[in-house]
Amino acid sequence: MSIAVLGAGAFGTALAVSLARKGPVTLWARGAEQVHEMAESRENARRLPGVKLPETLTVTSDIETALSAETLLLAMPMQQMAGFLQAHAEALAGKTLVSCAKGIDLATGQGPTGLIRAHVAGARAAVLTGPSFAADIARGLPTALTLACTDHSEELQAELSTPTLRLYRTTDTTGAELGGALKNVYAIAAGTVIGAGLGESARAALMTRSFAEMQRIALALGARPETLSGLSGFGDLVLTCTSAQSRNFRLGRAIGSGEGFDPSITVEGVATAKALDRLARERGIETPIAAMVRALTEEKIGVSEAMQSLLARPLKEE
Rank of each mutant, 00 (worst) to 15 (best):
M1D: 13
I3S: 04
V5P: 01
G7D: 08
G9W: 13
A10W: 00
L19Q: 06
R21Y: 02
G23M: 11
V35N: 03
A39D: 11
E43H: 03
N44Y: 05
V51T: 03
V59D: 03
V59I: 14
T65N: 13
A69Y: 03
E70F: 05
E70G: 05
E70P: 04
A75I: 05
M76T: 00
G83R: 11
A87E: 15
A89F: 00
L92C: 04
I104F: 05
L106M: 13
T108M: 12
G114K: 14
G114Q: 14
R117P: 04
V120E: 02
G122D: 00
A125Y: 00
V127I: 15
L145D: 01
E154A: 15
L156I: 11
Q157I: 05
A158M: 13
S161A: 14
R169H: 06
T171F: 04
T173M: 06
A176W: 03
V185H: 02
A187I: 07
A189C: 10
A190C: 15
G191N: 02
G195W: 00
A196V: 12
T208N: 05
S210P: 04
E213L: 12
I217R: 02
A223Q: 03
G230R: 08
S232D: 02
L239S: 04
F249R: 07
S257A: 14
G260M: 10
S264Q: 13
V267P: 01
V267Q: 03
A273K: 02
A275Q: 07
A275W: 02
A275R: 03
R278N: 06
R281K: 15
R281W: 09
M292L: 12
R294I: 05
I301V: 15
I301D: 10
M307P: 04
R313V: 10
P314H: 10
